[in-house]
């Protein structure tokens, strides 16, 4: 896969893309605004038939960072969509209507980081016990272990 051509093409196709860079050997990171997530994900997953791998969410310095990993198995490239969310309002549209398998990992992220996925078909508790206190998110930076 000619990566420079690929980046050029996808930037023309989706002008809203903020930036795209090769972060490592065969690993492409595309930075996108959260409004165009569904559109670009649909293009990758349905049109290019990339395999959905998983979603990583983390609490980074600038805000909550969500990375959607897709794999192009014919070339071995992993294409990542990186969305940055505001710390004050951690909300994003759920990807479940496009990628069916995302449902579970989105619920896990809800538990671990407290990010709201709008229009999620089943926004219920996933990993934690029934007695886990509300509003405690272990992967956030300000998380303190209760005694």
């Amino acid at each position: 896969m000619d990566i420079e051509q690929y980046i050029k093409d996808i930037k023309i196709k989706f002008p809203k893309i903020i930036d795209a860079e090769v972060v490592n050997t065969k690993r492409l990171m595309i930075y996108i605004p959260k409004s165009s997530l569904l559109q670009i994900a649909e293009y990758l997953f349905k049109y290019l038939a990339y395999r959905y791998i998983i979603v990583t969410a983390m609490d980074s310095k600038e805000g909550y960072e969500i990375i959607y990993h897709f794999s192009d198995d014919s070339s071995g490239w992993i294409v990542n969509l990186n969305v940055m969310l505001d710390r004050d309002k951690p909300e994003i549209e759920s990807l479940t209507p496009v990628v069916y398998g995302v449902e579970w990992i989105e619920r896990e992220i809800m538990d671990l980081l407290g990010i709201t996925f709008l229009n999620h078909p089943k926004p219920e508790r996933f990993l934690f016990a029934e007695d886990w206190p509300e509003g405690k998110y272990p992967l956030r930076r300000d998380y303190v272990e209760e005694e």
Partner: peptide
């Protein structure tokens, strides 16, 4: 930096970020 690695386990792909 960012490292993304995967490997084929007996049950399928294991993915680490």
């Amino acid at each position: 930096g960012i490292g993304i690695g995967h490997a084929e386990a007996p049950r399928g792909e294991v993915f680490h970020f």
